[in-house]
Nucleic acid binder design. Structure first.
Lengths: 348, 348
DNA sequence: ATTAGCACTCAAATAGAGTGAGTGCTAACA
DNA sequence: TGTTAGCACTCACTCTATTTGAGTGCTAAT
């Protein structure tokens, strides 16, 4: 069967109406729209076709239709794109520049949630192409030294290293020099075993300290160790009856809390983005229903967007809501915050 | 009216039964208990008395009784104390020592939640009596330097300080020396304005850097800046019908997510503990229903316990569940984890 | 002081009737 | 040939009894 112009128009009308009301929509409702000069009977015929084609479905015989996952997908891919051009003014969203990145991200998550009335999350940026900037060892007390490791993009990691015998300031200075001369500017791949053993030799009896530092370096660079996820507005899901029955709500809430479930989503969306190159505009991905990689969110839709602070530092933010979420508004909101994050960090 | 032995026994029976079932309990049920050789009629009379005294109440005429907040309170204060002595073996709970305190705390929160089937939270320790251990400045790039501040208990804070003109290594070394000689071992109270201006004078043109560092120091020591709260098991509340209707669940979930609401609880329970000295055994506090300082948890009970890592470093953990929570089990679980935290950190 | 018995209450479950929004199908129409 | 009017049918929902059963309070007997 072919997707005619008129079928599209009807499909869109159904979806829009359902987005508003959350109730199945019937032929009569559609036929009353002004720009739709058709009787309900005709609409019924078309609806019947659309159902056969899989774009809409009936919760039970003789009730209105609701969009299927495929229907939403069509809407998002085709129908929404047309309206995209409408430039609309947006609520002022100000992300204040905080000292700590984590504070900014928490704030962004909150903004996303309050602006859309859905649940929101944002991750810390993942470092993809990152080089060591510098390492700083300092003595804390008799048997511990503090290692501060900084990689490009000013991501920090502290590690306390226990030592058996006390090291004097001089030794520490030497180790500092050793580490920095060998490692500065290198990426993870470039720090190979040969280099490591060379350094350990040069460190002599303090080779174990060097070992610990290397471990810490690996930690910083290894991405998911570092991945933090901030969430906000989980309680928004209670605003949508189709999600707020106990079983579903509980599942979603726990997915939100057990953040490791969300990492799947992060990986998936980042990898999909890479495949597309930058083609999918603004790197926005839409998962409808069972398309999402997180099983517990099969009744939701998830819209993700990436942001980039500096070269190679990409994070992801996402909105989780009912399938009938206002995709346009969500996309717009995500874009706005992408821009804001850009602006804040490009300036520095 | 007087609280007789028998009334206590009946009250306890009512509460225990209600803890199990969550249903109002009637006279007949109680009269069937073996150690209660009374007819339902007698129980009824006693129940009527207990109701008049405010320990139990009826959801509606002619249904069983449920414990009132006052009833729970009586139970927790008196009846539970007797059983306290029962030493019971506990599920093995192993807190693995992780590198990062935050990982340990997340783990503890999870253990609390899974062991009790209620929602759990734990805070990072608050430093009450804390001294500066050392400060380390290092150059990051042309116009920014990194300050690492360590206070007793190895709490760290990083701060990136922007500078107008580039500082050379030598200057940084000097500033390091200046800051450390003046500030090491001092507590917040001891860092007064006199000292600060003295240091700024000595720093000469770099007085602004000193200022920034001092600010950062204040940040670390100022407790609630640093307060992190880890939660787990929020979805457990769905296991209790009396909490899982939409409005209530939403309130509780958002209190859990908006962690700042929880700080009230933290403050309250820590201050109450201080008032009591160490008298209330193990520093365990029970808030029943409207007793809790967090308004959105008025339908819950909250049990809090403090833990202490090193001298003066106190954190709080707490369990949030329905009023009919199993207070004994919760108290026991909290104590076990208190001990475990002790053991882990006392050894180091 | 305790208990058996009885009338009474009330939430919850069950069943049946009516309502209305919606459909599919068929036949008439432009 | 595409569109429409009309009609029978479906089925979730709502409303209204009606029943059931767990529970109470009161009174009189033990």
């Amino acid at each position: 069967m072919e997707m005619t112009e008129r079928k599209q128009k009807i499909l869109e009308a159904i979806i829009r109406n359902y987005l508003d009301t959350g109730e199945p929509v019937g032929s009569r409702t559609i036929s009353k729209y002004e720009d739709m000069n058709l009787s309900s009977a005709t609409i019924r015929n078309e609806m019947s076709d659309l159902e056969e084609m899989g774009y809409i479905l009936q919760p039970h015989t003789s009730s209105g239709r609701i969009p299927s996952d495929k229907g939403y997908r069509f809407y998002v891919d085709r129908l929404m794109a047309d309206k995209e051009k409408e430039v609309s003014e947006m609520h002022e969203m100000v992300v204040q520049k905080a000292d700590q990145l984590s504070e900014v991200l928490k704030q962004v998550a909150k903004l996303l949630a309050t602006n859309t009335n859905y649940a929101a999350m944002i991750t810390t940026p993942q470092i993809h192409r990152n080089k060591l900037k510098f390492i700083q060892l300092s003595k804390m007390d008799e048997n511990s030294i503090l290692a501060v490791i900084v990689v490009e993009g000013n991501i920090l990691k502290n590690k306390i290293i226990k030592v058996d015998q006390e090291l004097d300031q001089d030794t520490i200075l030497k180790l500092n020099l050793l580490l920095n001369t060998h490692l500065n500017g290198l990426s993870l791949e470039e720090i190979n075993l040969g280099l490591i053993t060379l350094m350990k030799e040069q460190a002599g009896i303090h080779s174990d300290v060097v070992g610990s530092v290397i471990d810490a370096v690996a930690d910083v660079i290894k991405a998911d160790e570092n991945l933090e996820i901030y969430t906000s507005g989980a309680n928004n899901i209670f605003k949508y009856p189709e999600l707020s029955d106990n079983a579903k709500a509980s599942e979603i809430i726990s997915a939100f809390e057990e953040k490791n479930q969300l990492t799947e989503l992060v990986n998936d969306s980042l990898s999909k983005l890479n495949d597309d190159g930058e083609s999918s505009e603004h790197g926005i991905q839409v998962y409808i229903g069972s398309e999402t990689p997180v099983a517990s969110m099969k009744d939701c839709s998830v819209v993700t967007a990436t942001y980039e602070l500096e070269e190679g530092m990409r994070g992801m933010m996402s909105i989780i809501g009912p399938k009938r979420m206002d995709y346009e508004k969500v996309a717009k909101t995500l874009k706005t915050l992408q821009d804001q994050l850009d602006q804040i960090y490009k300036k520095t």
